[in-house]
C-alpha cells in the first residue's frame, strides 16, 4: 500500500471488476453463470441436432436392430420431398392461413387491451392467457364437440345456408385450421401487445391533427410502429403450427395428415429413421428460411 500511496486513489485499486460501456461486469463469473445452461443446451439441443443431420444421411436400408450405415445418402431428402410433398405443403398452407387469422384476431385483441382497456389492461391480459393453461389436448377435444355434425356451429351454418345439409366441419381442413388458430392465438397476442403498448399515443393523435383519417392514421403510424410485434407474433404462431399434428389428428381427416404426423409415425411406427430425420430436417430448413427472412427485418434481440 505504501508504494501506491500518493500516486493513485485507494478506491481505484480496490475495484476488482471493471465494467464496460453498458454497465456489464467483465470477468469469469459471467461464464460460470452461463455454463450450466449452455452445457445442457449443448448436450440436449446442439448435439441431438447433429445426430438428426447424421441420421438423415444414413443408408435407408438399415434398421433399428441391424444398425445404420453412414453413406451420406442425400437421396433421403429427395425421396422425402417426393413422398411427402402433400403433407409438407399442407402443413405450410394450414399454418399460413391459421397465422393470418391469428394476426387479425390477435391484433384486434392486443390493440383493445393496449389502448382501450384502461384500468382493466392487466386483467384482460391475464384473461388472454388463462384459457391456455388448460391442457392443450383437452381443449382441442372440446373443439371436436363444438364442430361436431350435430353441434350448434354446424346447425347455425346450415340454417344460414353457408353449409349444405350434409355438410360437415369435423374431419375437414376448416376444423384443423380453426383448431390451429385457437391453440396458437396467445403466441400472437402477447408479442403484439408488447409492441402496441409501447407506441406513443401522441403520435397517433398527431396524425389526426394532420388531417389523417383514423384508417390512414392506423396504416401510416400504428401498424409500422407495431411491426416488431407483428414479426415475432407471426413467427411464434407459424412455427409451432407448421410442426403441429395434434389438431390435424384430432379434428382433421386421417387422409389429410400434416408433416408432423408423418414424421412421428415414420419414427415410431415405421421405424424408418433416415426418412423421418430427413423430413424433419426439411421442415426445419423451411422454417429457418422463414425465420432468417424475418430476422433480417427485426433482429434477434428484438424477437426475444
Amino acid at each position: 500500500m505504501a508504494s501506491t500511496a500518493g500516486t493513485a486513489p485507494v478506491a481505484v485499486t480496490d475495484i476488482k471488476e471493471t465494467k464496460d460501456a453498458s454497465g456489464r461486469r467483465r470477468g469469469r463469473v459471467g461464464y460460470l453463470l452461463l455454463l450450466p445452461a449452455v452445457i445442457w443446451l449443448g448436450l440436449f439441443f446442439v448435439v441431438p441436432f447433429y445426430s438428426l443431420v447424421a441420421t438423415s444421411l444414413f443408408d435407408p436400408s438399415g434398421s433399428d436392430s441391424r444398425g445404420y450405415e453412414m453413406t451420406y445418402h442425400v437421396a433421403n431428402y429427395w425421396n422425402a420431398i417426393q413422398d411427402y410433398k402433400g403433407p409438407l405443403l399442407r402443413s405450410l398452407l394450414y399454418a399460413g392461413i391459421a397465422t393470418g387469422i391469428c394476426l387479425v384476431l390477435g391484433y384486434v385483441l392486443a390493440y383493445a387491451i393496449a389502448f382501450k382497456a384502461g384500468r382493466w389492461k392487466n386483467l384482460m391480459l391475464v384473461l388472454v392467457i388463462a384459457p391456455f393453461f388448460t391442457s392443450f389436448l383437452v381443449r382441442t377435444l372440446s373443439w371436436k364437440l363444438i364442430l361436431a355434425d350435430d353441434g350448434f356451429v354446424v346447425d347455425a351454418l346450415q340454417t344460414l345456408h353457408l353449409l349444405g345439409d350434409d355438410g360437415r366441419l369435423l374431419a375437414t381442413p376448416v376444423a384443423v385450421v380453426a383448431g390451429l388458430t385457437y391453440n396458437f392465438l396467445p403466441f400472437m397476442v402477447l408479442p403484439l401487445f408488447a409492441s402496441i403498448d409501447k407506441i406513443d399515443h401522441r403520435l397517433i393523435e398527431a396524425s389526426g391533427d394532420l388531417y389523417a383519417n383514423p384508417i390512414v392514421g392506423f396504416f401510416r403510424v400504428t401498424w409500422p410502429l407495431s411491426l416488431p410485434g407483428v414479426v415475432s407474433g407471426t413467427l411464434l404462431t407459424f412455427i409451432p403450427s407448421a410442426g403441429d399434428y395434434i389438431n390435424a389428428q384430432l379434428l382433421g381427416s386421417p387422409n389429410q395428415r400434416m408433416v408432423g404426423s408423418v414424421i412421428q409415425s415414420l419414427f415410431t411406427d415405421a421405424n424408418n429413421y433416415p426418412a423421418a430425420a430427413a423430413l424433419s430436417m426439411i421442415l426445419m430448413l423451411l422454417v429457418l428460411v422463414m425465420v432468417l427472412l424475418f430476422v433480417r427485418r427485426a433482429g434477434t434481440e428484438e424477437l426475444l
Binding site: F49, L52, T55, I239, Y245, A277
Partner: peptide
C-alpha cells in the same frame, strides 16, 4: 424456441 417441437423431439430421439 424457434424450432418446431417435432424437430426438437426427433433430434433428441435420434441422439
Amino acid at each position: 424456441m424457434a424450432a418446431p417441437e417435432i424437430v426438437l423431439g426427433s433430434s433428441l430421439l435420434a441422439l
